[in-house]
Nucleic acid binder design. Structure first.
Lengths: 249, 249
DNA sequence: GTATTTATTGCAATATTTTGCAAGTTTTTA
DNA sequence: TAAAAACTTGCAAAATATTGCAATAAATAC
């Protein structure tokens, strides 16, 4: 049997029974448990099921995937996320933006950390759904079917009801003189509100977003307090931001 | 049996019987009491049930776990859903409540039907995510980790911003004199608001919910305009509702 | 065509997690 | 207060994961 076919079979069994064991799959598909384990790992990385000890289970009904966006560069994003994690302290109220870097960050939050998380991202909710001590508040609004977030008036109003210690924002484009920009007017408004309502803003950005600009203005670079990237803070491309008074990690 | 599956079985039994003993669980799941004790500890740390001496009880103010209800009586729920579908007309603004009946209904909405849907249920969003012409507005709020809905002040405020043609509500309990009731104060408030803001309310109920009552009052039975059940409208158990002026389907 | 690379699979050695048991402690019950 | 039931802790056995490696098959280059 060809590998793809086997993956299909696994998915089918999971969707039928909601959970399957390695032993059963290994027997019914005539391959070793090791192979099944690897298959499940592949499928779980694609977000098509959830790997658990001894087998796999179907995902929760909370939407968890970004459809339009490819999950490329995940390694870099995890680096950024793990650097940003240090700024989150027990007991804080934090805003989590959309975007895969932020999703990676949510995955890293320790299970015993008490937090209040306000977010407008379905994938983030999906990650925190299993978190025992995080109080999660979802900012509703019009569903953005491409980014898997909510957006618009309602979303902004919700964020206005909170005063966060920290806003963890994913960056679309950042430029020393053009400031923070994004591809969409409503998103710009929303990000502006999130920053206003938070004591401190941390921008998560991979190096390819630095020194670029899009059409819709969010605010000057000095609106962010800290920039976290996937390179060394000593990288000379970052000097211009340091001179503007922004802390780099 | 894999561990995850066992945890769900425990949740299911707890939500069905409201309380379970270590001894019973140990016998029915074929593991030692120690293991069950550890399982219950895990679940209680996630806030999905309450550990008590000798077993576990359901968390009183929280609706039963979504997954536990998911498989239960799906056939009946689909009957109810398909009957309710006829009331949804092109171009309307509709409220969709949580619950598996409503999820089944969302699945039946034709792909070419133009609608504005306001909901607080993640599973419903998940279904409508693929719908090409439905504008989906998600009512944010505090995440209810068992029912996969949002709840609380924020959620209620969001619904107050809309005037819907139709509110499709899942019923917890309905009784001719006790009225509409549910297991949780916040949920009761929310349902009340949804009905207030909608021109017409349709209650989806399987027969086992009829003539039962829970602790938290939503409103009199006359708050709903139509009741859709899984039996014939001529069923004599429904007469008392007809006499109250409610249309039965 | 053959050689080289690449991907896949199973196996073995080594961690890690889960589970059941036993001994001792606490809580409940009568 | 004594007996029974339930809980806690530590530990060893079993189950499951991880890693590296070799054998095989498939793809690609030469």
């Amino acid at each position: 049997m060809i590998k793809d076919e086997r993956l299909e079979q696994i998915l089918e069994q999971v969707s039928r029974a909601r959970s399957v064991s390695l032993t059963d799959l290994s027997a019914s598909l005539n391959v070793s448990e090791d192979t099944i384990r690897r298959d499940i790992k592949i499928l779980s990385e694609k977000g098509l099921l959830k790997a658990v000890r001894g087998g796999a289970v179907a995902h929760s009904p909370i939407p968890h995937h970004f459809r339009a966006r490819e999950k490329h560069d995940m390694a870099r994003k995890r680096i950024v996320a793990s650097k940003a994690l240090q700024f989150i302290k027990e007991g804080q109220v934090i805003f989590l933006d959309g975007g895969t870097s932020i999703q990676a960050l949510a995955e890293l939050i320790p299970a015993d950390m008490k937090l209040t998380v306000v977010t407008h991202s379905f994938p983030v909710v999906s990650v925190l759904e299993d978190h025992p001590t995080a109080e999660v508040i979802f900012a509703g609004g019009r569903l953005c079917k491409t980014a898997f977030t909510t957006i618009g008036y309602e979303t902004i109003q919700t964020f206005k009801n909170f005063r966060a210690d920290l806003c963890l924002m994913s960056v679309c484009s950042i430029h020393p003189t053009m400031g923070l920009t994004t591809v969409n007017h409503e998103e710009a408004q929303l990000k502006r509100t999130m920053m206003e309502m938070a004591g401190q803003t941390i921008a998560l950005s991979t190096m390819d977003k630095l020194n670029t600009a899009e059409s819709f203005y969010i605010g000057p670079v000095t609106d962010v307090d800290i920039i976290v990237t996937d390179t060394e803070p000593t990288d000379e491309r970052l000097n211009v931001y340091k001179e503007a008074g922004i802390t780099i990690f």
